[in-house]
Amino acid sequence: MPRIIETRRLTPVTKFFRIDAPLIAASAQPGQFVMLRVREGGERIPITIADYDREAGTITIVVQEVGATTTRVCALEAGDEILDVAGPLGGKIEIPPGGHVCGVGGGFGSAALLCLMREFTARGDKTTAILGARNKDLLILADELRPVCTNVEICTDDGSAGFKGFVTQRLAQMIAGDGPGRPDHVVAIGPMAMMRAVAETTRGPGVKTLVSMDPLMVDGTGMCGGCRVNVGGKAQFACVDGPCFDAHQVDFDVAMRRNKAYVKEEKQALDRLTCMANREAR
C-alpha cells in the first residue's frame, strides 16, 4: 500500500500529502488524476495530481475536506498507508509551446498548477498563475508556485492579499493588457462556478481556455460513464476523454446539476462520520 511520506495543513480544510508511489510518479503528466480509497467499503474518489517527483518516486496531492471520504483522507498523517491509489488516469494537458500560459487556480485547485506551470516554464513558455481565495489565510501554495512561474498574481475577495476581487476580474484586466499581459492560453482548475466564470471571461476576447472537470466518478477508468460531460453537444467521459476540455464547449449547467446528484447522501455520510467522531471523543 502506498505510504504517506509528508503531510502539511495548508488551510483549516485543505491538506498537502506527499505519497510514495513510484510507478505513478514515473508516468504522471500534468492534468492527470488518481483514484483513492481509504477503507474497506470506502468509495473511490478522484484527486488531481498536484505534482510528482520521478526520482524520489513520490506524488503530491492536495485534498480539501468536503465530504466523508475527503475528511477521512485528511485524518491521515505521515507514515500512514492509503488503502488504494490507482493512476495516473485521464489525459495530460496539451498546449502548444511558445505562448503565454495563464493558469487560474481557485481554492485547492491551485495545487494542480504546480506540475503544470513547472513544465510550461521549463520548456520556455511565459507563465502566469492567478491564485484566488476568499482571504489570505485560505490562499495555498503561492510560495511553491513562485519559483516555477514567470508571474504569480494573487487575488482575494477581501483584499487581504494582492488584488482585491475575483480571479476573473484580474484575468479580464490581463486580457486587456494589464500586468503580465494577455495570455494565449488559459487553464482553469478549481470549483465549477469559478471555471464557468473563467470560461465566460475568455469567451468574448477569444482566449483559448481549458477547464479541468471534476464530475462524480465511480471507477475512473471509463467503465461507468457517470462522469460524462456534455462538450460541444457530445457526451464525453471525463476519466478517459478528459478531464480537461475546451471551456467554451462545456455545458456547465448540466455539469453542475449532475455534481449535485448525491448531495443528500453526501451530507448523510458526513453527518454520520461527524457523529461517530463525536461519540468517540466523548
Binding site: E265, E266, Q268
Partner: peptide, 14 residues
C-alpha cells in the same frame, strides 16, 4: 462498491 450497504459503505446509489 456495496451501495446496498450505504451508509455503512460509502458509495450511495439512489
Amino acid at each position: 462498491m456495496r451501495g446496498y450497504e450505504f451508509p455503512e459503505a460509502d458509495t450511495p446509489v439512489r
